[in-house]
Amino acid sequence: MDEKSYNFLIIEDNLGDFILIEEYLTENILNPRLTRAETFLSAKKILEDKANHFDIIFLDLSLPDLSGEQLIVGVLELAVGTPVVALTGFSDLDFSIKSLGLGVSDYLLKDELTPIILYKSIIYAIQRSKFVDQIQKSEKRYSDLFQLSPLPMWVYDLETFHFLNINQAAIAHYGFSESEFLSMRIHDIRPEEDIKLMEEAVADTRKGIELKPKTVFRHKKKNGEVIFVEATTNPLVFNGRSSVLVLVNDITERLRYVNTIEKQNETFREIAWIQSHVIRAPLARLLALVNLLETEIPETTEECASLIGHINDSSLELDQIIRDISQRLENIVSIQKNEA
């Protein structure tokens, strides 16, 4: 005996059928709580009351005010995720299939109904509803992560190359509208000369060869601007199609910064070379002349000796200044290279 608490809404105009369903339920469920509605309008009133919560809705497909497909659609719109089990006295295979397609959890014939069949249908419908709810929540989490990502993301078909899904960041960054993206192939955002490289990468993906993380490609925006991006890809099945999820990071500005730093470094190296070679060459000659004066003209006046000494000291001081500047330039080049 199932001791769980169940709330059932039974939409049934026939009192005898309602009593029979009640008896069948009590054979396997200890204390089922039943609410009955005899017409669609009365059921509508019950379902619109937010205070009511039901685990299962049993629906007779022939009510005084509504029947068939219209009745199913109307109840499903009101049920809002509550499993609906259709009950009928007529065997119609085509309509039973159509009913399941509309969203009912099960389709039971009253003449073939037994306590165990009814109980199994309840358990199946509740478990199926939980499973569907989990799938929907998982899909919503994926959709939220996809759409709320600050980086451009899209899904493309591995066979046709067509875009299948695109997030808002990609729409904003590339300039194409969603409808434009979904009518395009991934070829359309590549420079012509890069398409062969792109097709080779896709061919590797088809073979199961993973793309190296943060592989750099060139992409083309709607306005014709060519950008450099790091691409990360993951294969997945999207709407039954073999597809690839792509996340890209525009590194164009970073590369421009690195190129600027490299040019600055080259300039600094040229300055350091000029200081260490061009400027220091005449300075070295000046120091040699001072040394020559000190050695070749030993007998000089005190005033002359003092003057030679000042020239020598100034030359040595200038030499040290040039060395310091060269060292600092080398340090700047080294720091900028590490930052880049």
Rank of each mutant, 00 (worst) to 15 (best):
Asp324Pro: 09
Ile332Ala: 13
Asn167Leu: 00
Asn31Met: 08
Ala281Met: 10
Arg254Asp: 01
Tyr142Asp: 08
Asp2Trp: 07
Ser306Val: 05
Ala231Phe: 09
Met198Ala: 15
Val290Ala: 15
Leu63His: 01
Glu12Ser: 07
Ser243Ile: 00
Ala284Lys: 13
Glu69Lys: 11
Ile251Ala: 02
Arg128Tyr: 09
Leu145Val: 02
Glu253Cys: 04
Ile325Asp: 10
Leu158Gly: 00
Lys110Glu: 04
Glu77Gln: 14
Val237Pro: 02
Thr88Ser: 10
Pro115Gly: 11
Gln168Lys: 10
Asp133Trp: 08
Phe238Trp: 11
Ser183Val: 01
Arg128Pro: 01
Ser67His: 03
Ile271Gln: 08
Ser91His: 12
Ile261Thr: 09
Glu262Ile: 07
Gly74Lys: 02
Ile332Met: 12
Glu270His: 11
Ile11Asp: 05
Tyr6Lys: 00
Ala169Leu: 04
Ala201Gly: 14
Ile11Met: 04
Lys222Ile: 00
Ser138Asp: 00
Ile21Ala: 06
Ala281Leu: 11
Ser149Cys: 08
Glu299Ile: 13
Phe8Val: 04
Leu316Asn: 14
Ile261Ser: 04
Thr260Lys: 09
Ile274Asn: 15
Thr82Met: 05
Leu292Met: 13
Lys222Met: 08
Gly74Ala: 05
Tyr124Glu: 08
Lys337Asn: 12
Arg328Gln: 13
Cys304Lys: 14
Val226Glu: 14
Lys220Ile: 07
Glu296Arg: 13
Lys130Glu: 14
Lys120Tyr: 07
Ile21Asp: 03
His187Gly: 03
Ile332Pro: 06
His173Trp: 09
Asn7Asp: 06
Ala125Ile: 05
Glu22Lys: 13
Lys44Cys: 03
Lys220Trp: 03
Phe40Lys: 05
Ser315Asp: 07
Ile189Pro: 06
Leu236Trp: 00
His310Gly: 11
Asn331Val: 11
Asp49Ile: 08
